[in-house]
Design a protein around this nucleic acid. Structure first.
Length: 225
DNA sequence: GCGACAG
DNA sequence: ATCTTGTCGC
């Protein structure tokens, strides 16, 4: 799948690519989960990205393993086309990972996207595994503000269809925007994300991946090779 | 034309 | 995302 994909596209071509790939997405509930992975990127330099994939045991949420990958970024950040900027680096990191998680959580949208294919959904097609999008802010869809207590949530709609949920993962904290990616459904996404929240706004997979990528960013600074 | 706009 | 200190609240 990924071998046949082209990344050197113009924004217009990228949009056409999304319209083609969205047809391949599958919707289903997530069964048994023993390993949960989280992905995040940092940018040591403006044209250089550092991807981190961390694998946690479930439900203990203990770190099992993690990989990092640093490389140049060519595609610019354009709302709706995030996968074309962060996808290439993530996939290179993915090749280094020896363990196969049961589900992967991304920093961004799943299907709560203008063309129903945010980075989590897009990458799910490539790694052929269940994926979930956990975004820190809104991109697409209508919703009502959820209650202020942990666990409360409101669905995100596209017209009359439910495409995700705005979830309060911690009391009195800004909610997160969760939506299923590939081989997942809204209910499974909500349940898994909430079961990975242990006192912080972000679920452990994504939160820990972020911490590692930030630590890597500092190390990567000042290096020329 | 105007406002919105993942990271 | 990144540039950056202190500060208010649980």
């Amino acid at each position: 799948m990924k071998e046949l994909h082209k990344w050197n596209l113009s924004p217009k071509e990228a949009i056409e690519e999304q319209k083609k790939l969205v047809e391949l997405l599958e919707r289903s509930s997530i069964k048994k989960v023993d390993l949960v992975a989280g992905v995040d990127l940092s940018f040591p330099k403006e044209d250089q990205g550092c991807a981190v994939i961390v694998v946690l045991n479930f439900p203990t949420l203990k770190i099992v393993d993690y990989v990092t990958e640093v490389s140049n970024i060519s595609f610019p950040y354009i709302p709706g086309l995030l996968a074309f900027r962060e996808g290439p680096v993530f996939l290179r990191a993915w090749e280094k990972l020896k363990i196969r998680p049961d589900v992967v959580m991304f920093d961004g949208q799943g299907i709560a996207h203008p063309r129903r294919i945010g980075i989590a959904a897009h990458m799910g097609l490539f790694i052929n595994l269940p994926t979930i999008g956990v975004a820190k802010s809104h991109l697409y869809g209508t919703y009502k503000q959820p209650g202020k207590h942990k666990g409360e949530y409101e669905f995100i709609y596209d017209e009359s269809e439910i495409i995700g949920a705005v979830i309060r993962t911690k009391n009195n904290c800004k909610p997160v925007f969760v939506s299923p990616g590939h081989k997942c459904d809204v209910q499974s996404a909500i349940e898994l994300v909430l079961s990975c929240c242990v006192g912080y706004r972000l679920p452990e997979p994504t939160r820990i991946a972020h911490l590692i990528s930030q630590k890597q960013r500092v190390k990567e600074k000042g290096f020329s090779s």
